[in-house]
Amino acid sequence: MRNQTAAATGKLQVKQPGSQRHNKFIQSFWSQKFLYLMVLPGFLIVLVFAYFPMYGVLIAFKDYNVAKGIWGSEWVGFKYFHEFINNPMAMRTVKNTLILGIYSLVFGFPAPIVLALLLNEIRVLAFKKFVQTVSYFPHFISTVIIVGMLKEFTSLDGMFNTIAGWFGKEPVNFITEPQYFRTLFVGSGIWQGIGWGTILYLAALSNADPTLYDVASIDGANRWQKMKHISLPAIMPTTIILFILSVGGILGTDFMKVMLMYNPGTYETADVIGTYVYRIGLEGGRFEYSAAVGLMLSVVSFLFVLATNRLSRKFSETSLW
């Protein structure tokens, strides 16, 4: 078999002596053929499940008709984009989405880093394990239950109001007051994700060379200085990559959770693009409209990621590409 291949490549070489580059490529391809073969399934999966369906995004520009199919349906251009942008609630939903996303990023992103750094400082292993386990738990609880618990905590005779009562505060039904919605949403988000988020950072921290800490101790550095000059730089690359990725998620608010948490009392701050499009689509499967809004959000999110990546490449050594 090997002889045959050699003969085949040999033949090629004779046939096209000029295209040296082409030749090299084939040679290297052939010598690594099994590696390519092993890549093939993964490549196919991405192609079939991530790229082929993208063609479906065309319905955002069409009056979709099942019988005619995606390609055959009538072209309506930017009709659905116009419909969304021209509705009187568009600005508010965009604003709410952005604010919720930015708050989640600003408060939610650093939280696991801080926790990871603190955990890293704990010397009693049993306590560290305990804290980790406890903080992981909420991640495994479904959002429906989380919101149910949140409603319980924030109810008139719930935990929050009991505590506020000790300081002589009047009870408030937090969940129907628009001014508390963002705090509750972001706060519960941190509660849900903080423990799980530390995993990557703790892994990165374990990569920091222990001799550095010893050397720093000899030089008389205190714990704060060690954290600042050794631990933090050690997790910086991970942090930057995760940050770039999470910037892409600013517009992708957890629509399910908002749906569960909001009510007419909090529409003012809670009604995001996702929930609004859901309500407008209730009238009966408006795939085109949802696809159009979804596409719009994806494009903007992608631009966010690109911009952050560029900034990061400019100011640090880490970037996605």
């Binding site: 419909e83 509705n87 009187p88 609630m89 129907t176 007419p264 009392g265 529409y267 003012e268 009604d271 609004y276 309500r279 407008i280 689509g281 209730l282 009238e283 009966g284 408006r286």
Partner: peptide
Amino acid sequence: RDLRANTMTPIDTYVKESAVKFIK
């Protein structure tokens, strides 16, 4: 149906949240 959804969704949203405000 599209016309109804496009017209009534913003109105219903506004009416529902205003009703809460009137009551409160």
